[in-house]
């Protein structure tokens, strides 16, 4: 494992911890999109099917369990927790996330490396992860006033994606040169979705202002 991959995994882990910290200690999910969180839970559930069939490493198994457990517990908190659910802004979080799922299923059935259940599910999870942040970004645009933890959560997610691209570049040059178009392109699309957010995040950080997105 190279340094970019490890740093990517750690920023991903921190992003989840920041979100859980916000929900668990402040008992608030204000500014957090349930739609995006549900999509992430689906992404992990379809991608980590190999957890019982293929053993890669203890690290790999533990991280998969953490991401599965955290994503489902975040969804549980927002939907069921008697205090947290009150802070959920249902009227603002209106992105029709179900309409993202069907195109991803069709795309995964058409464009995949192997036409097997596990492989199609894995490919579906890559396509879905690429667009899963969209409901969250739309919600941010609407709420405008973004609290620090929510801003950090999205920043860390974007950092994780950027580091994964550096990891693929590194792997391409240090390992056998295989081409992974599906992973690379969906990963690149996903990272580009953060470009706008990054711009305003760094802008507010540089000027020491509160993060605000333009209407």
């Amino acid at each position: 494992m190279n340094i970019f991959r490890l740093a990517g995994d750690m920023t991903h882990l921190f992003s989840v911890l920041v979100l859980l910290l916000k929900i668990h200690t402040i008992k608030s999910c204000a500014g957090i999109s349930l739609k995006t969180q549900e999509l992430y839970a689906l992404v992990f559930a379809t991608r980590y099917l190999d957890i019982f069939t293929d053993y890669i490493s203890l690290y790999n198994t533990c991280m998969k369990l953490i991401f599965l457990g955290s994503s489902f517990s975040i969804v549980w908190y927002i939907r069921r927790h008697k205090i947290v659910r009150r802070s959920y802004d249902k009227e603002q979080d209106t992105f029709r996330h179900h309409f993202l799922i069907l195109p991803c299923i069709i795309l995964a059935l058409l464009i995949n490396e192997k036409f097997t259940v596990k492989e199609v599910m894995w490919t579906f999870s890559l396509y879905l992860e690429a667009v899963a942040i969209l409901p969250q970004l739309v919600l941010l645009q609407r709420t405008r006033n973004i609290d620090n933890l929510t801003g950090q959560y999205i920043f860390l997610l974007g950092a994780y994606r950027s580091l994964y691209i550096l990891n693929w570049i590194y792997r391409y040059f240090t390992e056998q040169h295989y081409v992974h178009w599906i992973t690379w392109i969906s990963g690149l699309v996903q990272t580009l979705l953060y470009a706008d957010f990054f711009y305003y995040y760094f802008h507010s950080w540089k000027n020491n202002e509160k993060l605000q997105l333009p209407a």
């Binding site: 890669i56 790999n60 991401f67 693929w168 792997r171 390992e175 056998q176 040169h177 295989y178 992974h180």
Partner: peptide, 10 residues
């Protein structure tokens, strides 16, 4: 094993 199989990623 395929050393460059990205299935070892998360």
């Amino acid at each position: 094993t395929d050393s460059n199989d990205l299935k070892d990623e998360l």
